[in-house]
Design a protein around this nucleic acid. Structure first.
Lengths: 210, 210
DNA sequence: TCATTAGTGAACAAAATATTCATTTGTTCA
DNA sequence: TGAACAAATGAATATTTTGTTCACTAATGA
């Protein structure tokens, strides 16, 4: 038998099937068929159906997180870093058709909205990333000294933007402008009015109304 | 109990559920729940699940057909009538979210493509409408004397346009221009080069390349 | 060769689901 | 009012699905 390189193939297939049918209606045989193998073999990769599901979501969320991380790695200026983080987070989340469909389909498991979030650790990682940006912004004197307890709220905003984007996708609303406005609002609470002498990073164009 | 007016409500709900899950994964309980009643009661309106499915598709297709019929009823000029028929047929077919999703989901039952089409009668009605237009066009001297055996092929073209439109919907391709081109091609085979003295209807703008 | 990993087929208990039917709940109208 | 009728239900049943296990086979690598 051809050895299967890694779990990625299984997770990718499972993600698609779960996104198509939701947890309940998706069957292990659907997933196995998509992979060209029998359902019994799936038990080598997950203890049971629920496990396969959670592992899959976890895998997809981590991939999403990693992409956002890469996107902001190149940014030198904190303000830009913050903006890119917000934009990319929503972009990738709604861009990955399967992940977004999955998150919309089984709302009871949507991170941060479930009674007890099975993906709390992943959200924690996201929040750590946000916190790092805030801390750096504050240290560089670019951001106000905000309470770091507001970090979860920023992540929450991002999810909210994603949901809105998903639900109104069919209509051709000027969503991106609405989205930009939200990011703008977040920034206005963060970024200091005018950096006195120009700090570490080169002066970024930060459109702000007078 | 409140008496239920007619079958429309049941069919509408069934259409939505079947479109969401496909025939196999949709359960009678899903449909009943959507209607706020118990599945047992569904058997008052259809002999079994398959029956409910076929009745529902039939109902949706007939509604679609009726709308196209209304749309062309107002047109005086045959050429315009033909164009409107093509355009509206695809528009309504892909516009009715549930119907289109349903037709895409269970391809084996897609009219004209199934081994033995359970909706042959409805297609026949559509073809009768097309034939009436052709006959009128020929009688008025606006159309070439085409073989009426080509009627099914025109209906087939319409379905084909619909399918393409559905599959590429996500990408923002200039679909409507592609679509218009197809109609143009159909027309070019039909409409006579130049009506000598101007026939019954007022002269319609029929964009044709030299 | 042996050890290890990947995969299968059959079997089974539990759950889901289509279908039936006797009964209940409203509605209509004499 | 109450008889006749239609709409809907709850429970029961027969049949499939489906999640899960396990003994067993096939391929790979050293």
């Amino acid at each position: 038998m051809k050895p299967r390189e890694n779990l990625d193939t299984i997770h990718a297939a499972a993600l698609e099937v779960f996104a198509d049918y939701g947890f309940k209606k998706a069957t292990l045989e659907d997933i196995a068929a998509a992979l060209g193998m029998t359902k019994a073999n799936l038990y080598r990769y997950a203890r049971n159906k629920r496990d396969l599901y959670e592992n899959t979501v976890r895998w997809a969320l981590l991939r999403w997180q990693a992409r956002v991380g890469e996107a902001i790695a190149g940014e030198r200026d904190v303000e830009r870093q913050f903006r890119v983080m917000c934009r990319k987070a929503v972009e990738y989340l709604s861009g990955d058709a399967h992940l977004s469909r999955l998150l919309m389909r089984d709302p009871e498991i949507f991170p941060m909205f479930a009674e007890q979030d099975p993906y709390a650790d992943i959200n924690r990682a996201s929040m750590a990333m946000i916190r790092r940006i805030l801390e750096r912004g504050i240290a560089e004197g670019r951001f106000r000294t905000v309470d770091l307890a507001s970090v979860p709220e920023i992540l929450f905003s991002i999810y909210k933007m994603f949901i809105i984007r998903m639900y109104i996708r069919t209509k051709d609303r000027p969503l991106d402008s609405m989205f930009a406005q939200t990011v703008e609002l977040l920034c206005r609470g963060l970024v200091l009015p005018e950096p006195p002498g120009g700090p570490a990073g080169e002066p970024q164009a930060s459109r702000r109304r007078p």
